[in-house]
Design a binder for these strands. Structure first.
Lengths: 194, 194
DNA sequence: ATTATTATGTACCAATTAGTACAAAAAGAA
DNA sequence: TTCTTTTTGTACTAATTGGTACATAATAAT
């Protein structure tokens, strides 16, 4: 063991980078800006992230999604009524502060913001969204088996329906943050979970 | 009337610009690339579009939406069953070629791709989507009045529901173009139009 | 034909981009 | 202390960005 010690924790600086990428977008977030927010210099950065900005972004996507999934799975694990939890999860979108309404979904943004040149990164985002979809699907399948969900549609279809709802709301509310009818739209959309 | 004649038609070159912006995204589409596709030089461009790239983009959004709205209104005007037409309109999303599935909605993309610095342009995109929403809402209101639609939900909510569906599908299908269940998800989503 | 007007093409520019080179710093090991 | 290893900060760079300046070209009016 030798060498000068790192002055930063990788998970922490990646978390800072999430902030910047989320509010500014992948292209618009400049390397300087990211480094500033992360609190490290170029020397350290390009040593730790040999792939540069792109590697940082991919790691930020993975780290964000990982945290998100773990949180959701945890909440589900301690819930008496997982279907209701998913409903609440969606309804909570209507209560987000305006600032959050404007930012969209961190993963979904990647899907829309990346150009064809970043097809590989896009694929990562697709996988990560697919992971959330899988969680939804599992909850639905189980609820159907336990007769807690009357809707007999294929769990995979309902899972995709929910992810689609998620993606939609995260785009729609950007155009009109805090708009009156979001709650009613969500209620209407969630009637399939009966 | 005097002066050297223009060698291009504004609507035509803006249409070319739509192509570039759509496939590459606002930031990623470079001025050179746009000019190349439009087939005009910098001199002509910056004379005709004093606001540069941004003005071109805003005009492209307006022109695209204008064409889109007119087409939709026309189709509705000659339709015997406007609600069915809207259903078909959405179901057609599942038949798009992969290349189109990957591109998303031209207007919705703006909402997600623009950074906070372009809030004014974002607002334009929001208005344009609102215009489509208004068309949906009108169709629904009329159908309810004519008892052709049983669903008694507020037309405004159903209109927002449909735009939300539109936005969702245009994000979701990017992650998995041509995926199996899109058709079923759409059918499930359109059950509200009964 | 001369003039006024508008459009065009090209050369140029300042700013910013992501990324590199490298010498100095900070630790442990000998 | 001296050597080795790793990290850090800074100076630099090559490419690209959107945009401007301006001389020239092409037309209509006089």
């Amino acid at each position: 063991m030798a060498g000068r010690p790192k002055i930063f924790d990788e998970r922490e600086v990646v978390e800072k980078a999430v902030d910047v990428f989320w509010t500014k977008g992948y292209e618009t977030a400049s390397a300087d800006e990211l480094l500033e927010a992360m609190g490290i210099g170029k020397g350290s950065f390009y040593l730790a992230f040999k792939g540069g900005k792109k590697e940082l972004y991919e790691k930020s996507l993975r780290q964000y999604a990982d945290r998100f999934d773990k949180q959701l799975l945890h909440d589900l694990s301690i819930s008496k009524d997982p279907i209701q939890l998913i409903k609440d999860f969606f309804m909570a979108l209507a209560d987000d502060p305006k600032s959050k309404q404007m930012k969209g979904c961190y993963i979904g943004n990647a899907l829309v913001q990346l150009s064809d040149g970043d097809a590989d990164t896009k694929l990562i985002a697709a996988e990560l969204l697919g992971s959330v979809e899988g969680i939804f699907t599992d909850v639905i399948r189980k609820a159907q088996q336990e007769k807690r969900l009357k809707n007999k549609a294929k769990p995979e279809v309902l899972g995709k329906y929910l992810i689609n709802l998620w993606n939609g709301v995260n785009v729609t509310r950007r155009s009109n943050p805090g708009y009156e009818n979001l709650r009613e739209v969500l209620e209407m959309s969630l009637q399939v979970l009966h």
